[in-house]
Each structure stands twice: as C-alpha cells, then as structure tokens.
Simulated assay, not measured.
Amino acid sequence: MEIRDITESDLSAFAPIFREIVDAGETYAYPGGLRDDQVRDLWFEAAPGRTVVAVDDDGTLLGSAKMGPNRPGRGSHLGTASFMVGSAARGKGVGRALAEDMIAWHRREGFAGIQFNAVVETNTAAVGLWQGLGFRILGTVPGAFESRTHGRVGLHVMLLEL
C-alpha cells in the first residue's frame, strides 16, 4: 500500500467512497447527494493542510485522510484530521496506515497536538484505533450526532499531545 498526496485525477475514485460513508449515516454529518465538485470542495485541503490517499499495488484507491490546522490563528498550533476508508478495504490496516502517516505529518509540521472535534461514540473501530495510537477522550457531547442506526449519540472530542 502506498500513501500519497491526492490529485484531481483521484476524485472519480474517491467520490464514491465519500458517498458510501456519508450515505451510511453513521460517522459523518455531511449532506448526502453531493456532486463530485462538492466532494472535492469539502475534502481536498489547501495549504497549509494536506489530503492523501491510500492506494494498493494495482492503484485501487482504498481510502483517504485530510489534515491541517484545527483552527486558524491562535488555534493553529493544534491539528485535526478526517478519514474515510471504503468498505471493501476495511479491516486491512488502511485506517491505521493513514493515521500513522497523519501523525507523522503533524509532527514534521511542528503541531503541538491533534484534536478531533467530532468522533461518533458508536464508531467503536475508530475510537479504538485512536485510543490505541495514544488519543484520549476529553469529553463527549451527548446526542450531538444523528446516527441512522442508533439515533442520537454522542460525539467525542479527542486529543493526542505531540
């Protein structure tokens, strides 16, 4: 598996993964039915941020991560990130590889930490991955996410100090 910066030519392979995850209604509050250009506008980060893709040996796009400052100005010393892995690639280490790349990037860029603002508490695979990489839950906003399966569930705020 290779992790590399996203290119415009990756949009046609990434947009279906984005829609699959958003339409499932379990992890992201993005609206459904977005066109490819709207997916690009939401997911492709401009500098000082970065968006990457994970591709397998035959070039199949498996997932993506976007990262950058959590807030502008006086909040820019903390980074943040978002991840999407296609259902066909789950359980194969793609999320972990993207996460390790993201943490290394934040370190190289001199961030003091990484803050996740909204990790859905019922997304136990992601919560477990983040905790395994050293993130801790700072708090949970009760009922802040409308899960298609579970109804209103909490959103964790998580932090990894670098």
Score class of each variant (00 low, 15 high):
S9V: 05
L11C: 08
F14E: 04
F14Q: 02
A15I: 11
I17D: 03
R19T: 12
E20K: 03
E20A: 07
E20P: 02
E20W: 03
E20L: 03
I21Q: 04
V22R: 01
G25E: 01
G25P: 02
Y30F: 14
P31N: 05
G32I: 10
G33S: 08
L34N: 12
R35Q: 13
R35Y: 05
D36E: 10
D37V: 15
R40G: 02
R40D: 08
L42R: 12
L42V: 09
W43G: 02
E45N: 05
A46N: 03
P48W: 14
V52L: 00
V52I: 10
A54L: 02
A54Y: 01
A54H: 08
V55M: 00
D56R: 14
D58R: 13
G59K: 04
T60N: 12
G63P: 02
S64W: 07
S64D: 07
S64T: 15
A65C: 07
A65T: 13
M67N: 03
G68F: 15
P69V: 05
N70P: 00
G73K: 15
G73E: 14
R74I: 08
G75K: 14
H77Q: 09
L78I: 01
T80L: 06
F83V: 14
M84W: 11
M84D: 12
A88F: 05
A89P: 01
G91L: 11
G91D: 09
K92A: 11
G95E: 09
R96N: 03
A99Q: 08
E100F: 01
D101F: 09
A104G: 04
W105I: 07
H106P: 01
R107W: 09
R107Y: 02
R107K: 15
R107I: 08
R108E: 15
R108H: 06
